[in-house]
């Protein structure tokens, strides 16, 4: 069988999927990035590889997305490198062509995507505030000593949600502490937090957007039953959560890779097992002294050979990659 590999390296989680030609998900892997995307990519790939038959199975193309998409592209050799908004929209519209609204809440960003006739019509992404995203919920769960997996179910037990100020993460937290000290039950506080976050999302990210049925809720936070219920309560519309809600970004990347391969007859850029698993990848950074801009330039090296540079506004470091063949690239930063 031939598979398309989709990789979504996010701030909190790193997701990998193997998708067949007829868009069946053969294998999915959901890992915590834990601040080390290189390690996450290696581990994720290793886990996927175990499900492939050595004879007969191959990877036809690779797509990467998420905030770590450029790193993943360098480490694995991606055919498509796409932003997470497009990837999520493509995945949702492929599985739910009749969907009209996608709510997507990830580790550090939240988005709303408006679809009309299966095509993205409008989108928005949080700008200044990360309240209500996965990492904030993580933090609150840890503070209350509740496993994040049980957070949502506990919220559902609430009979009378407490009103929490959800304007910003910091205020929400101090208001939660206040309500705790007043003696409100923990499940009511958690449900109150869920409702506050939903209001915050609808007033900021989704402000001015027309939310219409069918609504798809995806991203890691969709696992939280409390938030799902809060959305349904505020919007007064049913919320649909896809089967693979937590890896929709990776699925989108795989679909984009497939589209690209179908449109152009070309060889995949995929680097193969030994490149990814046996290489010693290191990153280093420096402040370029070339001009007063003082860009922070990052260099990715594999076995001491520079693979990629980024962060330079004038692109002079990036250009060295094109200028020298791989063997001669002993430049160090």
């Amino acid at each position: 069988m031939q598979y398309y590999l989709g990789v979504d390296i996010g701030s909190v989680s790193s997701n990998f999927v193997l998708m067949s030609e007829n868009m069946q998900i053969h294998r999915k892997v959901y890992l915590r990035t834990q601040g080390n995307p290189v390690k996450a990519i290696k581990e994720g790939y290793e886990a996927l590889k175990s499900s492939l038959n050595i004879i007969g199975d191959s990877i036809k193309a690779v797509g990467s997305t998420g905030s770590g998409r450029h790193l993943a592209a360098v480490l694995m050799g991606a055919d498509v490198v796409k932003n997470e908004i497009t990837a999520h929209a493509v995945a949702a519209s492929s599985f739910y062509p009749e969907a009209r609204t996608i709510l997507e809440i990830g580790g550090q960003d939240s988005k709303i995507i408006i679809l009309r006739n299966g095509i993205v019509n409008d989108f928005a992404m949080n700008t200044v505030c990360a309240a209500g995203t996965g990492s904030f919920l993580d933090q609150q769960a840890a503070r209350l000593n509740i496993a994040i997996e049980q957070f949502g179910d506990l919220a559902l037990k609430s009979r009378q949600p407490v009103r929490i100020a959800g304007r910003c993460g910091v205020f929400a937290e101090s208001d939660m502490v206040h309500k705790q000290q007043m003696g409100y039950p923990v499940e009511d506080i958690i449900m109150g937090l869920c409702e506050a976050l939903v209001r915050n999302y609808l007033n900021n990210v989704a402000s001015g957007k027309k939310i219409e049925d069918i609504i798809i809720f995806q991203g890691g936070v969709a696992a939280n039953a409390g938030l799902r219920k809060a959305f349904e309560k505020v919007l007064k519309l049913p919320i649909h959560v896809p089967e693979n809600f937590e890896v929709m970004g990776a699925i989108g990347a795989a679909i984009l890779a497939m589209e690209k391969m179908n449109n152009a007859e070309k060889e995949t850029c995929f680097k193969g097992d030994s490149f990814i698993l046996e290489g010693d990848f290191k990153t280093s950074s420096m402040e370029c002294k070339g001009c007063p801009n003082q860009c922070e330039v990052v260099c990715i090296k594999r076995n001491e050979k520079a693979l990629a540079f980024w962060g330079d506004r004038c692109k002079k470091w990036e250009a060295t990659i094109k200028a020298y063949p791989e063997e001669d690239r002993q430049l160090s930063v």
Binding site: K82, N83, E84, I85, T86, A89, N117, G118, I119, V120, N121, D122, F123, M125
Partner: peptide, 16 residues
């Protein structure tokens, strides 16, 4: 990220 997503959206719309 937002600019790329915006141009992707316009391209797909145009194609459709």
């Amino acid at each position: 990220t937002r600019l790329e997503a915006f141009t992707d959206m316009l391209n797909r719309k145009k194609k459709a």
